[in-house]
Write a protein that binds this DNA or RNA. Sequence first.
DNA 1: GCCAACGTTGGC
DNA 2: GCCAACGTTGGC
Length: 141
Amino acid sequence: MRYWLFKSEPSTWGWDDQLAKGDVGEEWDGVRNYQARNFMREMKVGDLGFFYHSQKEKAVVGTVEVIAEAHPDSTTDNPRWECVDIRAVETAPNPVTLETIKADPRLSEMVLVRNSRLSVQPVTPEEWRIVCDLAGLSATK
DNA sequence: GCCAACGTTGGC
DNA sequence: GCCAACGTTGGC
């Protein structure tokens, strides 16, 4: 069981949109980056992830669960792009901002800090625990 | 709105 | 196969 981080611009697909899909969840489509796609291929049903808002908000706003493993991205005919399906699990009582993450030395190695442009990224179990703690999240499903 | 960082494309 | 040019992302 692994941990991940999904980044999205709230104006395109935000936490509210994800919540509205409920347990049915939604495809994490539109990824056109090999690194991000490769991470999605590694995902298993039951893996957990953070939902991160980029741009204006720049904060972890909730947790999601992988409910379907990598399959063709329905938004393109190009077979090289795949995506997983995720569902919202829990809304963060206290969203954790990028500023907070950058200020915490324990989180200085997060991919979010190291490579801010990668839209799907792995999170270590320790980082998961720390960010959940800061966010007031339960860290489980 | 700017710009740095990064990924991709295409000419050679 | 290299690398310059270009496009995109996302933080500031």
